[in-house]
Amino acid sequence: MDLISEILVTPFMQRALIGSLLLAILLGLFGVFIVPRKLGFMADGVSHASLLGIAVGIMFGGAPLMWAALVAACIGLVLARIEDNERLTLDSVVGIVLVGGMSSAVILMALTPGYKPELITYLFGSLLSISWNDIYLLIAFFVVTLFLFKIQWRTLVLTTVHGELSSVLGLPTSAAKYFLFVGTSVALIAGVKLLGVILISALLIIPFSAANQATRSLRGSLILTECLAIIGTITGIILSYVYDLPTGPAIALVFVALFLGCVIIGRIKSRPVLGPEHNH
């Protein structure tokens, strides 16, 4: 009880918990639509490439994450545009964007004089780096994104369940696709302070992947994804606080453990039940 009270009254932990809850819900939600479309690699590409925006922010001044969000939004737009291009596969473009963005960022940082301690924060995340201003911005982004989800929900579900059929039926899918790509990209950047550029994709990819081991229905996956996202993030933050561990890796490892747990549960559930004739 003492530990929980201590965490709840510590201002930076309050901010970390509020921020992580909002991020867990948002990225878990995006993950439900991104992972089944086999776009998980996009998360790594966008988050790594957005380091370019962070480097620009550090080099020229201004809020690095705003620059990163701008870079991520642009990448999201480009990826949405080329998703159906048969000559340019999405994974190859993501790879190119990742390499190009990170390389540019490293060169920019090398050209920037002086010690750059904040870079490590952006790479792996830190509890201490989250300010109340970050939380207010995150709340605004959260509300707008949920509103857009409400508008695009049905189309997102239909195109995720059966993309080709949605196309054949002529359903208007463009707006939902651009929302998914750009929204995911910006949401990833919103979580960079917590998990860092290197590990933020864990919050997008692992909760749904884990939930999908235990349930097959969309509704079941959605509920379980959100539960796992919240549990994993909060557990990781508490472990990070108690044992003084780097936040991003702590959260990411909790998610990996949850995923393995769900795989085991899924295997047990799918094991054929022996009938009475087998009970010798």
């Binding site: 059966h162 059929l165 229905s217 969309l218």
Partner: peptide, 8 residues
């Protein structure tokens, strides 16, 4: 070839 209906 496959029936291609939305299962939900």
């Amino acid at each position: 070839q496959q029936f291609n209906l939305f299962p939900h």
